Simulated scan of single mutants.
Amino acid sequence: MKFQPDNNGYYGQFGGAFIPELLYPNVKELKDNYIQIINSSEFQEAYKDLLKHYVGRPSPLYHAKRLSEKYNTTVYLKREDLNHTGAHKVNNTIGQILIAKYLGKTKIIAETGAGQHGVATATVCALMGLECVVFMGETDIKRQAPNVARMKMLGARIIPATSGSKTLKDATNEAIRYWIQHPETYYLIGSVVGPHPYPDMVARLQAIISEEIKIQLKDQTGNENPDAIIACVGGGSNAAGAFYHYLNNDKVELIAVEAAGLGVNSGESAATSQLGEVGVIHGSKTILMQDDYGQIVEPYSISAGLDYPGVGPLHAFLHESKRAKFMNATDKEALQAAYELTKIEGIIPALETAHALAVLPKMDLSKYNTIVINLSGRGDKDLETYIQHLDK
């Protein structure tokens, strides 16, 4: 089965570019140039150099021995939390800032939920001396204060989104509106969402994760293929990166974990694959949570990075084709998983990542010898939430 998009950006029925006419020149410019830029020796040299000397790649593939003993299987953690800025997001922003420079752009806009993409974008803008504007939901600004402070220190201007649930969806809406009004800007999208070519471009830039997993796993075990790879999914960029080089290898099970919030059917959830239907959001056709009138249903998760009402078109296709298994974890299960990893391995994960860890107790682990979990971010930004629930 083909897991790369066609020329119009479709993975099966999902993808495409549903955009206002005013944005067509911007998106076409990117579509016409991104693959040529990414494949150029100039880009690859600059990208790899920054990933190595600035970001700190390769990120370790860590054999979590005590976690493995507890679950009677072999668990490896891909330590994206050890990247500069504390998450996988920087893999994408380094790549896109280089593409923006190739296209002659001088002003960057971005959306952010948990703040990690905002921090990663502000970081590379500071590095390259470019103006940076970040849109962030008012709710997320309050619950992700450390990342807001980092963005401001890095010189970014933060514009609050005050509509809807005041979270990631609304920040994206505001960013797109701003982009329409200021078409000279470059929109640095943070996940495998949005109009083509963004989902494919972001997946390609995050593919460094699975590229390294293959090399590191072979070095440590003699086999580059785990039995399963687990990653959390909101929009889905860390999962896309962890899955990318295994998409056509059906011997490797791909497990995507969504946020169930207070329960899949509680009305307070972000489990898109379970609750969603086919529709269009933020420029692409995908699976999204909507009511009988096609209006977007507000998502909820304790994690600011997972409360998105849709999922990237690649993941919608992986779900429909059954190439990936979609699971979910509630707020409570994610918190328990985070506390467990912290106490067993001395690693405090981001709340997003904790959802991926939370499915281990739900799986029949007897059929897995080796599992890789993408530890997509560190938990510093979520300490206030962790502290609030510590004694509950």
Rank of each mutant, 00 (worst) to 15 (best):
P299F: 06
L77N: 02
K107T: 04
T330N: 04
G12D: 15
H282G: 10
M153A: 10
L50I: 11
K52F: 01
V124P: 09
E174C: 00
G261N: 10
A17S: 10
P361S: 07
I371K: 11
N369C: 08
Q295G: 01
Q216R: 06
N91Q: 04
Y71D: 02
D49S: 15
Q96M: 03
P349F: 09
R150Q: 12
E80L: 04
Q290G: 01
V90M: 01
V133S: 07
S284E: 15
A122T: 06
A231F: 08
Q220L: 10
V233W: 01
M1D: 15
S68Y: 14
Q295R: 12
L335E: 06
L22V: 10
Y178M: 02
V124L: 11
I35Y: 06
T353A: 13
R143A: 00
P5E: 12
T85Y: 10
A161F: 13
K48N: 13
P60V: 04
I141L: 09
K325W: 08
S366I: 03
N8S: 11
D32Y: 07
E138D: 12
E320W: 00
G312Y: 11
E320H: 00
A334Y: 12
L262E: 14
I19F: 02
M327H: 15
D250C: 00
T353G: 09
A207L: 05
D81M: 00
D291V: 03
P5S: 13
S40R: 09
A161Q: 14
I215V: 15
I189T: 12
K31I: 07
R204N: 05
D81S: 01
I37G: 12
A126R: 15
N249A: 02
G267D: 13
A110N: 09
L390G: 02
S301W: 10
N238C: 13
A145K: 15
V133N: 12
A260W: 11
V278K: 15
C132T: 05
I287R: 15
P58E: 13
V233H: 04
P5Y: 09
D219M: 03
G263T: 12
V202Q: 03
Y339C: 06
V359P: 14
G267V: 06
E184K: 06
P299E: 09
I255W: 07
R157M: 05
L375M: 10
K31F: 00
G129T: 08
E258D: 11
G190E: 02
K251A: 11
P58W: 09
L61S: 08
L50H: 14
E111D: 03
F135H: 12
T139K: 14
L130I: 08
A100P: 04
G222R: 13
A350W: 00
A324G: 05
F317A: 12
